[in-house]
C-alpha cells in the first residue's frame, strides 16, 4: 500500500471527516432532506426538502473546543437570514456540557454526534414559518396533494424515529456491557493487589449532621454570647 505525503494521516483524517459528514447527511435524509451543497473548506452542509433549506456547520473532533464552538455559532447566526433553519453539529464530548442559552436565544439548533449516533440536542427555530403563513392560497388539488405528502412524510419520520430510538437503545446497552466488562476486569486486578486498602473518610455530611469543624468547637459557645457581652440586642 502506498501512503501519502503525511504518512497516511491526511487519508485517515479525510475518511474520519467523511464519516461524520455521512452520519449527519443520513440524519437529515431521514427527515426528508437531501444534500444540495457541501463546502469542505468551512465544513458547511446545505440541505433542502424542496421547500426549506437548512444550513449545518460541522465541527470535527480534532479542532473542537468551546471557543471554536461559539465561533461556529456566531458564523451561522450571521448567515441565518438566508436559510429556513441553521444548525451547529459538534462532537458529543464537547457538546454535552455546553451552555445552551445562547443557542436557544438565537434559535440555532445543536446536533451532537459520536461514533454511534447523531442526536438533535436542540431543535432549530424555523425562520420561514411566518413567511409560509403569509403565502398566497394554492389551488385545492395542490393543497390536497401536499397534505397527503405531509402525512406520508410524517409517517416516515415516525418510523425513522422508532428505528433511531431502537438503535440508540442497542448502542447504549452495548456501552453498558463494555463498561461492566471493564469494571469487572478492574475488580479482578484490585483483588490481586497485595496492598491493604483503607478508605478515606466520608467527605459529605449526611442530612442534618453538622460539619466536623462545627462539632465540639468552643467558639460556638463564645460567639453565641456576643450580644449579651455587648449590651444586648
Amino acid at each position: 500500500m502506498e501512503l501519502g505525503k503525511n504518512g497516511g494521516m491526511d487519508e485517515v483524517q479525510m475518511s474520519f471527516s467523511k464519516r461524520v459528514v455521512q452520519r449527519v447527511e443520513k440524519y437529515f435524509s431521514k427527515n426528508g432532506f437531501q444534500t444540495i451543497e457541501y463546502a469542505e473548506e468551512n465544513s458547511e452542509l446545505v440541505f433542502s426538502n424542496g421547500r426549506q433549506e437548512v444550513l449545518v456547520k460541522i465541527l470535527f473532533e480534532e479542532e473542537a473546543d468551546r471557543v471554536i464552538l461559539y465561533e461556529a455559532l456566531a458564523s451561522v447566526i450571521e448567515k441565518a437570514d438566508e436559510y429556513s433553519m441553521v444548525y451547529v453539529a459538534a462532537p458529543r464530548i464537547l457538546g454535552e456540557d455546553v451552555e445552551t442559552a445562547s443557542f436557544l436565544k438565537k434559535g440555532v439548533g445543536l446536533i451532537l454526534y459520536d461514533d454511534y449516533s447523531v442526536e438533535e440536542r436542540l431543535p432549530a427555530e424555523n425562520r420561514l414559518k411566518k413567511d409560509l403563513i403569509r403565502q398566497v392560497q394554492k389551488p385545492v388539488e395542490t393543497q390536497s396533494l401536499e397534505r397527503s405528502l405531509m402525512r406520508i412524510e410524517s409517517m416516515i419520520r415516525e418510523l425513522s424515529e422508532r428505528v433511531d430510538s431502537l438503535e440508540k437503545a442497542y448502542f447504549s446497552l452495548l456501552r453498558e456491557v463494555r463498561d461492566l466488562r471493564r469494571t469487572l476486569e478492574g475488580k479482578t486486578m484490585a483483588v490481586e493487589e497485595p496492598v491493604r486498602k483503607t478508605f478515606p473518610p466520608k467527605e459529605q455530611t449526611e442530612a442534618g449532621e453538622l460539619p466536623s469543624f462545627l462539632k465540639d468547637n468552643p467558639w460556638v459557645e463564645i460567639l453565641s454570647k456576643r450580644s449579651e457581652e455587648n449590651g444586648g440586642v
Binding site: 469543624f213 462545627l214 467558639w219 460556638v220 463564645i222 460567639l223 453565641s224 456576643r226 450580644s227 440586642v233
Partner: peptide, 21 residues
C-alpha cells in the same frame, strides 16, 4: 465564617465600634 454565622445570635446588630454583629 460558617461557624461564626451559625453561632452569633440573629438579633445581634452590627456595631461599627466593635466591628461585629
Amino acid at each position: 465564617c460558617i461557624v461564626y454565622g451559625y453561632a452569633v445570635p440573629e438579633g445581634f446588630r452590627w456595631s461599627w465600634e466593635r466591628m461585629e454583629g
